[in-house]
Design a protein around this nucleic acid. Structure first.
Length: 338
DNA sequence: CCATGCCA
DNA sequence: TGGCATGGG
């Protein structure tokens, strides 16, 4: 997924309690995928309503949002719009990888290899238009704002961070740094556990913050050079230079200063270079999206979760009460100061 | 993922 | 009380 910048980034373990009162952009597709792949039975089946429609994303969105609100975090979900034409190859690859996993899943089911069934099921996820629509409806009922990006959601969320509309971007994906997010937060939950792939075991995970400026400083590069490096390594929008990973890219950028110099010294070309740079640096975004928290609508939440999707009301009721009290108990003005 | 129930 | 297994939809 995206460019592997992990060897370069400067991470810091944090606690979500330290960010009480601050607004965060949540990468909607990223979090929906996480819910979809992890909220499952042991046999790999996702949660479903009486009509067989998947509801894992709604469960995840409901409980996660409330736990964040309870910790004083103001989440704004950001959803993807139309992808760039340059992403077509990446999207095709992902579809193919899922088709392959789906075939392997059939074999694993026949063999009754339950560990494998579970891990493969987690990879065969499709976020449908309906799922996104239901999630938006649920968020509205909960009084939590969301933003529809014209193009890349990560670009929109990062723009909101760059311009101080949110403090940070919550995503597992380091690509947000390329879009100029000042801070990217991973594992942004209070009670962190994550399943070890392939094994029925869990490891504790704590939230971590990746700071763009400190990452740049630690590597002795500029933001423009980071973008250049990513393009050399390969992004969702291009395949990169053969055999260039994070280490080589860093060496090359230090040696030559820019991707143009690297390419000319090697006699190589990257198609659509300026367009790729523009996707990261000057993306199509909604500049001033409305970020307004509203009073939760209890009846509407119950209608969506219980009436339409058979959630047990005695289970969710106390959480709706918590949500309502977090709304009532907070100050309405919260321009993030930093 | 998050919640709950059970048992040490 | 808390660590683990299981259920949720």
């Amino acid at each position: 997924m995206g460019v592997d910048l992990s060897p370069l980034v400067v991470k810091e373990k944090v606690s979500i309690r330290d960010f009480s009162g601050m607004t965060f952009a949540i990468d909607g597709y990223n979090i929906l995928y996480q819910f979809l792949s992890s909220i499952r039975q042991n046999d790999g089946t996702p949660l479903m309503d009486s009509k067989g429609r998947v509801t894992s994303h709604l469960s995840g969105c409901f409980y996660r949002s409330i736990s964040l609100m309870e910790a004083g975090i103001r989440p704004v979900f950001v959803f993807d719009g139309k992808p760039s034409r340059l992403k077509a190859a990446t999207i095709r690859e992902r579809v193919q990888a899922k088709e392959k996993a789906a075939e392997e899943l059939i074999v694993a089911r026949e063999k009754r290899d339950m560990e494998r069934v579970r891990s493969l099921s987690a990879r065969v996820n499709y976020i449908t238009r309906d799922m996104v629509g239901e999630t938006k409806a649920l968020l509205s009922a909960m009084g939590i704002p969301y933003v529809q990006a014209p193009s890349e959601g990560e670009a929109q969320a990062s723009y909101m961070c760059r311009t101080g509309q949110v403090y940070g971007v919550v995503s597992q994906d380091y690509d947000c740094l390329l879009f100029g997010s000042k801070r990217v937060f991973r594992n942004f939950t209070s009670g962190g556990r994550r399943k070890i792939p392939g094994k029925n075991m869990y490891v504790p995970v704590s939230p971590e913050m990746i700071d763009l400026d400190r990452t740049l400083e630690a590597n002795g590069i500029t933001y423009d050079q980071l973008v250049d490096m990513a393009i050399m390594i390969g992004t969702d929008f291009n395949t990169g230079i053969e055999k260039v990973g994070p280490k080589t890219a860093l060496k090359l950028i230090k040696q030559h200063g820019s991707i143009e110099s690297v390419l000319s010294s090697r006699g190589e070309v990257i198609e659509n270079l300026d367009e790729i740079k523009a996707i990261f640096k000057t993306p199509s975004v909604e500049e001033k999206p409305e970020i307004k928290f509203r009073a939760p609508d209890r009846d509407k939440i119950i209608q969506i979760l219980c009436d339409e999707h058979q959630f047990a009301s005695e289970r969710i009721d106390p959480f709706i009460e918590t949500l309502i009290s977090t709304y009532g108990g907070r100050s309405q003005t919260s321009l993030d100061t930093f």
